[in-house]
Design a protein around this nucleic acid. Sequence first.
DNA 1: ATTTTTTTTTAGATTTACCTAAAAATAAAA
DNA 2: TTTTATTTTTAGGTAAATCTAAAAAAAAAT
Lengths: 220, 220
Amino acid sequence: MQSFTEENYLKIIYHLAESSSNVQTNAIAEQMQTKPASVTDMIKKLAEKGYVDYVKYQGVTLTEKGKNAAIDIVRKHRLWEVFLVDKLNFKWDEVHDVAEELEHIKSETLIERLDEFLGFPKSDPHGDPIPDKNGRFAKTHFTKLIDLKVGDGGTITGVSQHSSAFLKLLEKLGLTLGKQIKINDVTDFDGSVEILVADKQINISREVAKHILISSNGKN
Amino acid sequence: MQSFTEENYLKIIYHLAESSSNVQTNAIAEQMQTKPASVTDMIKKLAEKGYVDYVKYQGVTLTEKGKNAAIDIVRKHRLWEVFLVDKLNFKWDEVHDVAEELEHIKSETLIERLDEFLGFPKSDPHGDPIPDKNGRFAKTHFTKLIDLKVGDGGTITGVSQHSSAFLKLLEKLGLTLGKQIKINDVTDFDGSVEILVADKQINISREVAKHILISSNGKN
DNA sequence: ATTTTTTTTTAGATTTACCTAAAAATAAAA
DNA sequence: TTTTATTTTTAGGTAAATCTAAAAAAAAAT
């Protein structure tokens, strides 16, 4: 199998590949908090081991093997997050760093039993889908709150930002998973959005609205 | 804090120190499955960081700081073992390797919450005491089964060998924690021990008897 | 179609934990 | 008390993952 570092690279490449098919060296470096030169080295190693396809100066794509390995890590990460929140009463903004460590524990039995213990959850505390043991999971197609029109409504079903600062803010604003919202107005000047949640009217910045994912349950 | 490797060294030195106050380089090497030369390197590093007192050619002893760090790892290891057995239905012979990885997860909150979730257990699945968050735990003074005399009885409260092979054997023989036993006879020829457990008479080798710990509840 | 900027790679070093082989210190045996 | 055996350390080297600085390729701008 792979080292912690290799696993982290695979996971990051996997996430970056969701938005652009060819993942760039610099993008990986930024996510890994390391230097592009180091990324080039690691990419070569991952290519040798058959986890990525790599053409010099053209970025990388995951092979089937690499994708499976990445999904496996994502599965572990998300299951551990559920454990921390459901069983150990962590808040959704406290789980990321610990899950980041737990995801590297290498025991298939452990993760299958954990999955069962948690009742085979389908999504993690941030609304992200949890792959099953075969790596399969429903493609979720949420709408970003920022893309809704005035009058549209829906349910908060995910976030695309896992930083503690962001999640704490949502918590404070009452914008947690499952909450119903409705777009009341979009401010011309700064693009901030006026929304109705739990009968209260609040205003959120574009930046915040970008990272809230809605499953729109109908226009009006 | 320390690296995984440093933590493993501290833990091993701590366990070795239970039987001999000055821990030898070779003994550490054997436990760490590495070479004495590597141990010398690491010992120097641990000494520099203040975890051990080290005099060339005289072996090491843990400092207060080193001892606390070691106990902290032992605490984590044993709590995770309880989790695996109590919550995920692992057998007592399946937990060691996984706990060996889990013990290195660095989050104080995690371990305090886990402790609470498990109901603040006092001992792990092998009968070893679990230090509390301040590193305190009852000094257990068990008798080795091998040291009992004919007619003595007691309760199995621990084992001093955690290998899967040994634990599986005990399981098969019905010699699990909490079982009452009584010494019926000691064979002159090979020193094997005839014991009564659950109304059945069985014979165990000296080697097995050495590693079963009894809290003797009275002679006869 | 050049020039400039950005991205990526190479080259050469560093750090951690390990190794082998040989030397030095200590302990055990004759 | 020498000799022998064991234990421990030193010296010098390797592999993994990183770094800086400089070179090379690709993309963007003029």
